Simulated assay, not measured.
Amino acid sequence: MKISNNNFANEEVVLDFHEYESCQFTNCRFVVLGYGPFALNQCEVVNCEFTFAGPAASTIQTMTTIYHNIGEQGKQLIEGTFDSIRNAGANKPA
């Protein structure tokens, strides 16, 4: 669902399956469940927090377990994943 030019304040906003464009979020709690993609395009975000629930929280817990319990190979896997995330947009044209 696409939502454009709205203002959100002091509320919980589930992101899954939503595309927000040119919206303003103030003091909101974003919830990522991990069921589907989302987008925040040209949005202003002020004093908001992100939380993970459902499958997204399970993924975070799995990554935490791998990092802390699988030794150096686990740490390298998770650090490599973060490097891929950090570099995902590096080679895209401006």
Rank of each mutant, 00 (worst) to 15 (best):
G80K: 05
E19I: 11
A88T: 07
Q42N: 14
N41Q: 14
T62L: 15
N69W: 01
G74T: 03
T26N: 12
N7A: 06
D16R: 04
A39I: 07
N47Y: 11
F52D: 00
N87S: 08
C43Y: 10
Y35N: 13
S84L: 12
A9F: 07
N91V: 08
N27T: 05
Y67M: 03
S22E: 11
Y67W: 09
F25K: 02
G74N: 08
D16Y: 02
A39F: 11
N69V: 10
C28W: 07
G34D: 05
I3D: 00
Q76N: 10
E72K: 15
N69H: 10
T64W: 01
S84G: 13
A88L: 13
N27M: 08
C48I: 05
F38E: 09
I60W: 02
L40Q: 05
E12K: 14
Q24C: 03
G71L: 04
A88Q: 09
F50L: 15
I85H: 03
L15F: 01
I78D: 03
N7T: 06
T62K: 12
G89D: 08
K92W: 13
T59V: 11
G71V: 01
S4V: 09
Y67R: 08
F17E: 00
S22L: 11
G74Y: 03
T81Y: 11
V32M: 04
Q61T: 12
N91I: 10
S58K: 15
L40S: 06
F17I: 02
A53G: 02
T59D: 12
R86D: 00
F8P: 09
L33D: 07
A90C: 05
G54V: 04
N10D: 14
N47I: 01
H18M: 10
Y20N: 03
A9I: 12
T59C: 06
P37A: 07
P37H: 08
E12P: 00
R29D: 02
N27E: 13
L40Y: 11
E72C: 03
D83N: 13
I70M: 15
V31T: 15
A56N: 02
T51D: 06
K75T: 07
L77P: 01
F30Q: 05
S84Y: 09
I66F: 06
S4H: 04
F50C: 04
C28G: 07
E49N: 13
E49G: 07
L15V: 02
K75N: 09
C23P: 00
E11Y: 01
Q42M: 11
E44W: 10
C43I: 03
F25A: 07
E49S: 15
V31D: 01
G54W: 00
E79H: 01
E19R: 13
Y67L: 09
L77I: 12
A57V: 00
L33I: 12
H18I: 02
I70F: 10
F82N: 12
E12G: 01
E11L: 04
A94V: 10
G80F: 07
Y67D: 01
F25L: 09
I70K: 13
F50G: 02
I60R: 10
E12Q: 14
Q73L: 08
A56H: 02
R29T: 10
K92E: 11
N27H: 14
Y35G: 12
Y67A: 06
N10Q: 11
G80C: 06
V46T: 15
N6C: 10
V32R: 09
A53Y: 00
S84M: 14
I78E: 02
A9G: 00
N87M: 08
R86M: 04
Q24V: 04
E79F: 01
D83V: 05
V14S: 04
K2E: 00
V46A: 09
A88R: 07
